[in-house]
Write a protein that binds this DNA or RNA. Structure first.
Lengths: 142, 142
DNA sequence: CGTCAATGGTTGAGCACGTCAAATATCTAG
DNA sequence: CTAGATATTTGACGTGCTCAACCATTGACG
């Protein structure tokens, strides 16, 4: 009983929106489980190596002044610290503390490990979905 | 050059998160293009027929008191109106105005029509993605 | 009937997020 | 050295979200 929809693209976009909505919730939940906000958690996840505030703003697509507050709150919890840039004294790089790295890894593990969405797919189908999403995601990148 | 990652699920979840992030931006943009906030736009999109506030809170997964404010702002722009429930005078159903329906359809069309993600896929692949996402999305539903 | 718990909605407090404009500090080009 | 660009912070302001308190209405039950 395949649906006789005329426009597959419409369906795909609507499904993407539905999945987006669910993922937003999962991020909220994983963040709250570690006493974080969603924005704080997302920032941590993007923090592999010490990163200038301005680049975080670019990656997270928001105003730089916004990053100040989020980093302030993370720093207050000792998850992150501002370190100076060796060559440019204007920039402050944000670095994970050891606690921050632990929390970051825990949040990441929780997001990956607890996604009920994948339960519907077997191994081959997951690989198929991975390949399709990889190509879709490329289109969104700058 | 297929990546030799050990865990396909990890990749899929990370890609889902990346796509989620991009979609969030697309919703923001489509909303702003019609002088809406993202929350207002999402509420409009979920508004097919007159719907009680409490159900909107359930669907949008937030506190009922939150809906009050969002509906207030939408109503101030004449996109939505509160109508009384014939059988239960406690209930206030939120209904699209004719302007609201126009805006809602425009936002929806914009979201569907302007997704660059699908440009990477041909027709068969879109159908494949649709089928996979449909099964994934089912897992998220209550 | 009359009472009372449950339900739907609103209000107000309080914090986080997000943008913008303005200020400061530092860099870089000329 | 000076002028303009860049990185960050601050403050103002609106929105999003939750929670607790409150009012109106409903439905069940003695």
């Amino acid at each position: 009983m395949t649906p006789l929809r005329r426009d597959v693209s419409t369906d795909v976009v609507h499904l993407l929106l539905e999945v987006t909505f669910a993922q937003r919730d999962r991020i909220e939940a994983a963040a709250r489980a570690h006493d974080l906000t969603a924005s704080g958690a997302l920032l941590l996840l993007h923090l592999e190596s010490p990163t200038p505030m301005s680049e975080l703003a670019r990656v997270l697509r928001c105003d730089a002044s916004n990053i100040t507050g989020i980093v302030d709150r993370l720093a207050a919890h000792d998850l992150v610290e501002r370190v100076e840039h060796p060559a440019d004294r204007r920039v402050r790089r944000v670095a994970l503390t050891s606690l921050g790295r632990r929390i970051r890894d825990a949040v990441d593990a929780e997001l990956v490990g607890s996604d009920p969405g994948l339960d519907a797919l077997n191994s081959d189908e997951r690989a198929q979905l991975r390949d399709l999403l990889a190509r879709v995601a490329t289109q969104y990148r700058p």
